[in-house]
Amino acid sequence: NKFNKELQWATWEILNLPNLNEEQVKAFIDSLKDDPSQSANLLAEAKKLNDAQA
């Protein structure tokens, strides 16, 4: 289903952001699991944090 694909993509993207630490990655992944419908928003937040920590 649509959410599953978005969830998988967002998870992969977050796991490959170079500037997030392990705790941050885990928090984002946990949030994705809690509410897959928010995957696009969570991914945007993760990318923002990644850029801020570059």
Rank of each mutant, 00 (worst) to 15 (best):
Q53N: 06
Q8G: 04
D30Y: 14
Q38A: 08
E22W: 12
A40K: 14
L43F: 06
N41K: 14
P18Y: 10
A46E: 00
K26S: 06
A40G: 10
K48A: 08
K48T: 08
I29D: 00
D30R: 15
N19H: 12
L42Q: 03
A52F: 10
T11D: 01
V25K: 14
I29A: 03
L43W: 05
L32T: 02
A44Q: 08
V25M: 13
D34F: 11
W12A: 06
K33I: 13
S31I: 07
K26N: 08
A40F: 15
S37L: 06
A27S: 08
Q24V: 04
Q24R: 02
L42R: 06
D34E: 09
N1T: 04
K26Q: 09
W9P: 02
N21P: 02
E22I: 11
P36Q: 03
L7W: 09
K2A: 15
K2Y: 07
L20Y: 00
S37D: 05
A44M: 13
S39H: 14
N21W: 06
E45H: 09
K47T: 07
D35W: 07
A46W: 02
L7M: 09
E22N: 09
V25Q: 13
N1F: 01
L7Y: 07
T11A: 05
S39L: 14
L32G: 01
A44Y: 14
A10G: 03
E22P: 13
V25T: 09
N50G: 02
E13D: 03
D35T: 07
E13L: 12
P18D: 05
N21T: 11
L32D: 00
D35A: 07
L15W: 10
Q53K: 05
D30V: 13
D51Q: 13
S37E: 08
A52R: 13
K5D: 15
A27P: 02
A52M: 12
A44G: 07
A54Q: 08
S39P: 03
S37T: 11
L7E: 06
L20G: 00
D30I: 14
Q24Y: 02
W12P: 01
N41M: 14
A46T: 01
D35Y: 08
S37P: 03
K2I: 15
A46Y: 03
Q38F: 05
E45D: 09
P18E: 08
D34M: 14
Q24N: 02
K2L: 11
N16F: 04
N19T: 03
N16R: 13
Q38N: 11
Q8P: 02
S31L: 12
K5S: 09
D51R: 14
S37N: 07
A54H: 10
W12R: 05
D51Y: 12
D30F: 14
N19G: 04
N1M: 03
S31T: 11
D34K: 13
A54I: 09
E45Y: 14
K47M: 10
A52N: 10
K5L: 03
S37F: 07
N41G: 07
E23T: 08
L7K: 02
A46S: 02
E6H: 10
N1H: 05
K2G: 15
A40D: 05
K33H: 13
F28W: 03
L7F: 07
I14K: 01
N41R: 13
N4E: 15
S39T: 08
I29M: 09
T11W: 05
K47Y: 15
V25L: 07
L43Y: 08
K2T: 06
Q8M: 13
Q8Y: 10
K47D: 02
E13W: 15
L7S: 03
Q53F: 07
K26T: 09
A27Y: 15
Q24T: 03
D51V: 10
D51G: 07
N21E: 07
A52G: 06
L49F: 04
S39I: 15
K5G: 08
L7Q: 06
W12Q: 06
L20Q: 00
N21H: 12
A10Y: 13
N41I: 12
V25Y: 05
A10S: 04
F28D: 00
K33Q: 13
A27I: 08
L42H: 03
E45I: 13
L17G: 00
F3G: 13
S39A: 14
Q53Y: 07
N19A: 09
L15M: 13
K26A: 11
A40Q: 09
F3E: 15
K33W: 15
I29E: 02
P18H: 09
E6R: 04
E23S: 11
Q8A: 13
N4M: 08
N21V: 07
P36A: 05
L15E: 12
E6M: 12
E13M: 15
E22F: 12
L43E: 01
P18I: 10
L49A: 05
F3P: 15
N1S: 03
L49V: 12
L49N: 02
E23D: 11
K47A: 05
A10N: 03
L42N: 02
Q53A: 06
N50E: 01
S37H: 06
N19R: 04
P36R: 02
V25P: 00
A40R: 15
Q38P: 01
T11N: 04
N16S: 12
K5Q: 14
D34V: 13
Q38D: 08
E23V: 13
A40L: 14
K2S: 15
L20D: 00
E22K: 12
I29L: 11
L15D: 03
T11P: 02
S31V: 07
D30L: 15
K5E: 15
T11H: 03
D30N: 14
A44V: 11
K33T: 11
L42T: 10
L20M: 02
T11F: 10
D51K: 10
D35N: 09
F28G: 00
L20V: 01
E6L: 15
L43N: 01
E6D: 07
D34T: 11
L42S: 02
S37V: 05
K47E: 04
T11M: 14
A44P: 02
I14F: 03
N41T: 14
N16T: 09
A40P: 06
L49Q: 06
N1R: 03
K47F: 11
L32Y: 02
V25E: 02
L32I: 06
S39Q: 05
W9S: 06
L43M: 06
D35V: 05
A52V: 10
S37I: 04
L20H: 00
L43P: 00
A52Q: 13
K47W: 10
I29F: 05
T11R: 06
W9F: 11
S39N: 06
K2M: 14
K2F: 10
E45Q: 15
L20T: 00
E6P: 04
L17W: 02
L17E: 00
Q38I: 06
S31F: 11
E45G: 05
D51A: 13
Q8N: 04
L7H: 03
E13V: 15
D35F: 07
S31G: 09
S37Q: 08
A44H: 12
V25W: 03
D51N: 11
L7G: 04
W9K: 06
L7P: 02
L49W: 04
N50A: 04
L43R: 04
A27L: 12
P18V: 09
P36H: 03
N19M: 06
L15K: 09
L43I: 11
Q24L: 03
W12G: 04
A52E: 11
W12V: 04
N41F: 15
T11G: 02
N16D: 04
K48V: 09
A44W: 14
K26D: 07
A54G: 12
